[in-house]
Design a protein around this nucleic acid. Sequence first.
DNA 1: TGAAGGATTTGT
DNA 2: CAAATCCTTCAC
Length: 224
Amino acid sequence: MPDSQPPKIVKRSFANPSDPQNFATSLVLTPGWFARPSTAVAPDLIGCTLVRRLPDGTIWRGLLVETEAYMPDDPACHAYRRRTERNAVMFGAAGMTYVYLIYGMYHCLNVVTDLDGVPSAVLIRALQLETIPPWIDPQKEPKPHRIAAGPGKLCRALKIDLSLTAHPLQLGQPLWLEQRSPKFQHILEQQAIALVQTTRIGLTQGADFPWRWYLANCPAVSKK
DNA sequence: TGAAGGATTTGT
DNA sequence: CAAATCCTTCAC
């Protein structure tokens, strides 16, 4: 039975109650939250935060401002034809990463959605980074808010590659997701900001399905 | 075993 | 608008 918003609070004991991870745990989106159709999860992910933990322990965070849904009977979905070695994780339980290589040089990050056996995912297309990682060359990208504007660019910015596919999105893993802040939720409900729904980008098939969502007037969105 | 092509990005 | 660049898929 899929969960609905808001996500469950994860109970976990800590030796030190002031441990910042203790607070972070309650914000982390759980597998059940992702166990809904990708067309339901994708808009709900806008305003949530992607957290990247590098092997050296450093944490890099970005606000999700653009997503796309890929469904089981969707000709644009990598799992549309059949199960293969690459897309196998999409056929499994929700809350896992699906990373693939595109055009030989860019990686794309997806979140596996829906029930076990229903192959679908949400492509994360753009982030608004909280801080700019030092390995980003400011000469190459003069606009700081555009560093993660695009699925390939955000993976480059957060050092996401094929080694991170089929990983659980959980606290302490290389990647996890955190729910919207109360402030974001509020201004969204007050319609002070708008979620735009439109068609997906770069497809040769299934291009007419309106399964792309982005934050209106956000400079970090990949394309207007 | 080989060839075609892709959920992208950048520069001409 | 075409190049970069390589993994995946499908045909033979």
